[in-house]
Design a protein around this nucleic acid. Structure first.
Lengths: 196, 196, 196, 196
DNA sequence: GATGAATGAGCTTTCATTCAT
DNA sequence: GATGAATGAAAGCTCATTCAT
């Protein structure tokens, strides 16, 4: 069995269990059982319960960043780039519902209980948006008075809140892709230079 | 001593303690000490620890709804109404920082640990936005193809994410009011009918 | 129930359990069961497992010191004082066998695992001997070249080792009092000025 | 690599680790690391953790016995023999500080956690003293009324306690040899027949 | 109503020991 | 013989909740 095998099995089990019960209600033994390893084995790969969450967070956000950057590589239109980002973000939910729920939780909780933890991976992820906006402003597509730092947060927040609703609702009205497009549409209209 | 007196003291203490430590790390005895009552006294007013959080959430959101509805009463321009909503939402952070932090956490957590809890108060709060959008569409101010149900989530998400950032950052670049205006500006441009 | 009641019950239970199993093999639940309280109750009176041992040690040594000082109060002959000290020390074993065993263990162990703990109570106890020796030297009873600081350690060590043997052996040859007298005899002869 | 090689490496490592942390706080992995072998290897040479301690104890005491018997071989004066024994005992501290600390601990603890263990090696070691005393009584050097079985314990106890102090104190007042001599002096005076 | 001492279930983490390689 | 990853029982400690006063 490869070394990374157990590590990955535990991470995946943790995602499942954290998503189901939340971080605090999840027991180590739950994760161990889900991963089909002994409780003690978890501590060969992680320092403690928090460490599982943090590692998981950084690893998974890291993968997401790589993926979206790859998707954006061949696109130059900043309007289209926003759409690609949004659709990719929302479609994560379809592929990795549990992961998204854990990341959402973690995002609100981690800074509460681990003061010293600085969430650089997350910042890297949303900075993709401000980069797009900045580029759009330089190319004259986007209004100059719009603040990229505000847009990135607002755009992420809008997508995130929408995905939260989506994962909770039993029978969503729209597809995830439609939803992503609608939010993108609002932001595109919201920041684009009017051709009047 | 009025009955509500102890209840309120405990609620306020809970807001403080939950904001400081998070729900799970907060101890009942912390709240009791902060409220200057005995541990057991809390159980005369609340069924259990979760109940404090839920009650707190509903009570406080209720007050916020009342306040913002009052502010919107004399305004008819849907563009201005969005701004009023946004500014009021963000300014909560100034007046009740602890409360905002607790509400943000609770929003992401409660559905994890209390499956049966349906967050009707929160829905009522964001429905104010969809009402504004709907009204704006009827009056011809807003584009018909925009979905009010999407806008309400996106608008709330954008404001909420921005306020999360704000409460975390040591020295924010902009004032809360400016931030509210910038986000409102994006959404106003995003959904308004173009006068071309 | 008096506050001190539970504290004392736990201390006495701890003495019993520590003596039976040793500190490390003793479980908190053993002590709790012996004291007929809940496991958690112990933590209302002691900070942790070590704290039980330390508190116990200091409290009980404190009592022993008081007792022996009282016994020595009306005696002026330093030779007799040594005997009183020795007999009292050895007779502890009869009255409080468990306690003696715990103290003996603790004496060898505590300084190993709690580096910062300075055993002032114990020093106070053996300093009684060096005081006697010093007084005996001033009154011309004891040889000047004898070091009180060495005698106190040697005397205590001799008594302690003898009592260790005693508590282990199934059928001791001599009575405790006889043993105390024999050791005292050696030391008396060992340090007294010869009347030649 | 000779069989005994690993055995010895582990024993020496165990002495170091037990002295540093005490038996219960020492981990098998600590010993393994110190001995530069794998954890599992230890179990090829010892049955369990306790077995390491017991083996170590018997082996090392055995060596000490051999050494002191050799030193005493050519001496016939019982007074001098006591001094040789004392000086050798105390000087162990200089050469094998860790070992002495472990033996001291073990002496007080082993009978607590391994009921069936009878410490014959230790008895053999202190019986050297009672043999000296007995011989001294037969040759008329020592008082007849002194009990060899008491002297051996008292003498060992005095030396042991003194060495315990010595290994704890940062800056001892006297040299180990002086201390040994002082204690011997007290016992010599204590049991010798007076030439009056 | 108010108190806070007492409870004990529950959890994270440790570590001696095993065993497949 | 040697390894060290894996095991899982075990235990210290916490804290929501209760209830006698």
């Amino acid at each position: 069995m490869r070394v990374s095998d157990k590590h990955q099995k535990i991470t995946q089990a943790a995602v499942k269990v954290f998503a189901r019960k939340g971080f605090f209600n999840a027991r180590i033994s739950d994760i161990a059982k889900e991963a089909k390893v002994a409780d003690g084995t978890i501590y060969l790969y992680f320092n403690n319960k928090y460490d599982i969450l943090i590692s998981l967070f950084e690893d998974e956000i890291g993968k997401i960043i790589l993926k979206v950057k790859l998707l954006l590589e061949n696109e130059t239109d900043p309007l289209k780039m926003l759409e690609i980002y949004a659709i990719h973000h929302m479609s994560l939910l379809q592929d990795q519902k549990d992961l998204v729920e854990v990341l959402q939780m973690e995002l609100r909780q981690s800074n509460k209980f681990i003061k010293e933890y600085r969430n650089t991976k997350f910042i890297e992820y949303i900075d993709i948006v401000s980069d797009i906006v900045h580029k759009g402003q330089q190319s004259g597509h986007f209004r100059q008075e719009v603040m990229p730092g505000v847009v990135k947060r607002a755009f992420f927040g809008a997508l995130d809140e929408m995905s939260r609703l989506w994962s909770l609702s039993a029978k969503p009205k729209y597809t995830l892709e439609d939803t992503a497009r609608q939010i993108t549409d609002i932001f595109q209209h919201g920041i684009v230079v009017r051709n009047s």
